[in-house]
Design a protein around this nucleic acid. Structure first.
Lengths: 202, 202
DNA sequence: AAATTCCGATACTAATTAGTAGATTTTATT
DNA sequence: AATAAAATCTACTAATTAGTATCGGAATTT
């Protein structure tokens, strides 16, 4: 066996474990939040020891940053793979639906917005900030286009729409409906979309 | 000076400090969140020592519980003081506006929803749970009434409306608009209300 | 099969913080 | 003014957890 293929095999195993670590981090983040998530939690969930964990990620901040970067990348990929004949509002709706489903399946922690500590930490993470800006740029364009066609209210300032849209991806109402109303995921998603775009009145 | 008036004077001072402690707790909770808020923070902000703080509240959980109870009571009081000729939807709108203003002035931490740890802690606090249920009962009635008149969408399940309404009180979009758009409070409140009731489309 | 290399785990350090015990000062009464 | 009582503060304990140094063991090469 050549050195190259041996290295690549090891590399493969390494990447696999890295992915498992990120999965565990995402799951623990969704349930416990950043401050209560311990590195022992993660190591334990993956079945490795803490020093091994530190072979992959140099700190807790780094680990969480990478987990969130993977989420952002997921959103960017989802957006890129959408049918290009879809209208801007159709894309925005599809992306929000995707985000809600990921959340309901326990795969998405609350956004940094909810904790100033976490937000500050992430803002110091250049690589994370760059990706967020990339995704944000794409969504801004979709919002502007949808306002032009009148599919989104043109009278609202675009940042009001943008920020409200982001907020819907981490709207706690989804969790409430899951926990207290035991509503099926599909219904929760449908209702959340309706409320987000049409409000509580219409 | 009689013993009675002396006791009442002391009592008064005690209550005053207690109120200052709760103010500080609310402020620190809004900025740092529960996990990062330390008892030394609070003691330092009020200008007393930690043991004195523990004379008022027997634990961190207790302190935070009392601070949130005071907030709920504020909401109940606000609701009670509203003009009774106001329609159900008018009351719901006024209460949401009140909550948003309190938040923007730094007086309201994110709701327990955002942290399972904090939520669990509060659910063990009987006195808190009772008040939440009281407020919740009132809001449920308003929602039902507003659905009956058609002011709120009668086709949505009432818990979808209820939970979405709660979520708007801690919608991070308000913070974003304050932080990134430097929008005046009045404008933020107006836009948030519009988006909550009419959605992003209309 | 012996030697070497590399990986992972046990067991530690340092720092933080909730909660408390005992010293100290302030306040009120005689 | 002296004494009694109460409240407050300084300085501690115990527990948690991020991050690391060092040791033991498995796989690979010769």
């Amino acid at each position: 066996m050549s050195i190259l293929s041996r290295l690549s095999f090891k590399d493969q195993a390494f990447k696999l474990r890295e992915s498992a670590i990120l999965d565990a981090t995402t799951a623990v983040l969704s349930t416990k939040g950043f401050d209560l998530m311990t590195m022992d939690d993660i190591a334990g969930a993956v079945g490795i020891s803490k020093p091994s964990l530190y072979k992959h990620f140099k700190s807790k901040e780094d680990l969480v940053g990478e987990a969130l970067i993977r989420l952002i990348d997921g959103a960017v990929d989802y957006l890129a793979q959408l049918d290009n004949t879809l209208s801007p509002i159709g894309k925005l709706s599809a992306l929000l639906e995707w985000a809600l489903r990921v959340r309901l399946e326990g795969g998405m922690p609350f956004l940094p917005s909810t904790s100033p500590h976490v937000r500050d930490m992430l803002m110091r993470n250049m690589s994370y900030v760059l990706r967020v800006m990339k995704l944000n740029g794409q969504i801004e364009k979709l919002v502007a286009a949808a306002q032009k066609t009148g599919d989104l209210n043109p009278d609202l300032p675009s940042d009001v729409i943008l920020f409200s849209y982001y907020s819907r991806t981490c709207d706690p109402a989804a969790e409430f409906l899951q926990k207290f109303s035991k509503m099926p995921h599909d219904d929760i998603v449908a209702h959340m979309l309706k409320v987000a775009f049409n409000g509580l009145k219409t």
